[in-house]
Amino acid sequence: MFTTLIQDPPAAATPQGPDYATGIATETDKWGQLTKLASTFDDVDGLFYFTYVVCIFFFVLITGALLYSVVRYRRKTYDQPAASNVTHNTPLEVIWTVIPLLIVMVMFAWGFKGSLDMTYVPSDARQYKATASQWNWLFHYPNDPAKSRNELWVEIGKPAEFLLESTDVLHAFFLPSQRVKRDIVPGRYQSVWFTPTELGEFHLFCAEYCGLDHSKMYAKMHVVTAEEYADRPWDTFDDSTPEAAIKSGESIYQSACYSCHSVDGSKLTGPSWKGLFEKSGDQIVGAKREVIAGGATQTVTVDFDYIKESIHDPEAKKAVGYENANMTPFKDLNDRQIKAVIAYMKTLAQ
């Protein structure tokens, strides 16, 4: 039910270009190759640099031997024979077979251990869900009805696990700073986890080609402190002005209420919201309603308490004519949200 309570943030069909997080890719780790590590998966960096050094060693060895030979043994006359006609050297060949073999086995074991760590999710991980669609991201927060689109907030030092789903084609959840990537396969769930260790804004890319606006399928991850996280910054519910409150109320109606309550007076499963409030001069006041409470009919004036009770405990007072309708209680709507709904109801007053 959480998922239906508050409408998804709107998805732009063709985003106008993402509002990029800034200054992240240019901020490198101390060795200058990878982007700055911001998670606990430091094995990736360790193995990367180990391999890197091994590669540079072999590259220098090969190139050095080549260039030396070219300079030293360059053919000066057209009939100059080779300085040596050795065709094999068994100890040498064994050495250059066995030593690389040992080195790559170390790399394999290290890499596999690192990737196993990436699959063992700590038990205290917060479970998020990310829904990828062409071409946007929708993030669901644990036990929270609010969702955010193309922006994500996680808490520093707290393991975060993501259940990944796609609504259409392949996508991939890629956080370079956290060293994690996972393809999102339609038809099943995948999961990925990490523990952010740095505060700030980070890139979240789609790394698997997904069509037209693949490159614009971008999200910004905010890693915030526990206090900031507790403020639920992803909740875009806004009642700072009367207009914003009406808009928020309407959006709650659109996502949760519209299927049973009309706003034009027509009769659906539940009573219409039209006429809950009436115009009286320049004032908008609650209308009088006949309700059945505890088997007895009584008259109530529509006000905040009545609306809140009807949302949190619909069985308490049932409107006459709708005795048999059963409404799901929406206990997660808080007072601010209910006030926003009422602000929207008041716009329907006649």
């Binding site: 990367f48 890499g111 596999f112 990436m118 370079p176 994690v180």
Partner: peptide, 19 residues
Amino acid sequence: GLTGVILGALNVDIHLHDT
């Protein structure tokens, strides 16, 4: 060839895949 070795390691490849 050598960068291929870098990509063969599982966890490093997870970071570098599709980049």
